[in-house]
Amino acid sequence: MYIKKETKSLMLRVLILSLALTFLYLPIMTLVVYSFNESKMVTVWTNFSFKWYQALFNNTAIITAVGISLTIAFFSAIASVIIGTLAAFVMVRVHRFFGESAFLLFMTAPMILPEVISGLALLLLFVTLGDIIPVFSDRGMITIWIAHVTFCSAYATVVIRSRLVELDVSIEEAAKDLGAGPMKVFFVIILPAIMPAEIAAFLLSFTMSMDDLVITSFVAGPNSTTLPMLIFSSVRRGLSPEINALASVIVLVVSMFAFGSWILTVRKQKRKERNQALVAAELRKEKAATHQ
């Protein structure tokens, strides 16, 4: 049987992607399914029930941990976006300054360094600084925030930088020629143009901060147990069906965000296409008018 080359390639793509998506989603889906299981035995199905969700929402330790994690993630994401924007700006626009290679290394290394090393390093810093500056002596949300900003800003930099590189410099130069100051150029021209990247960097930093376990464990204090730390300790103690319910809630929230962002990109793309079509129609009209 003769199959066209395009069809073959399409079939191969569908096969690869369906295998990949099965691998990626099967574990998550099993958690979601078993979160509705009445039995305490995590994998023996008995009856459909919302029991574990009730237990989850009545568990004050989990609710407190969620609050702590959300607070840290929010402030980490804000600081990371600010530092990331500045760092990306330096990388793209400022050239040949003292310690440029070191700067680039500092902004890349936190992404790849094993977390046990970064966590230990930061803790030892806080312990050493604690003698001099009292803020660091009692570890808690502030030390976690500093640790999170340090690695999240590296990711934020990558995201913002890739957008900043593509920016057309001529618009900025035109604004400068027309007398706009550097601050005005930044807030009126550059910031709106890189806004999608800023939002992406914020969300990435937020999820990274929400999710971090190892670095946080090193720098956390006794009253700052974050959500991943709580999940980890309860998972290590044994399987608990409440974690299934929690996982399902996390999956629900994340997929709502993902769906929302997908809708936004689709809309933006449609608007862009429509605008392009309108411009093309106008051009055709003009051309026709001049020909007559």
Binding site: I28, L31, T207, D211, L213, I231, L239, V254
Partner: peptide, 21 residues
């Protein structure tokens, strides 16, 4: 989006999912 979405959910929860499997 579908490929990277699992990495937005909790890391520990994903490991836990494999434990139950």
């Amino acid at each position: 989006l579908l490929i990277i979405m699992p990495s937005w959910t909790s890391f520990v929860v994903r490991i836990y999912a494999w434990m139950t499997i």
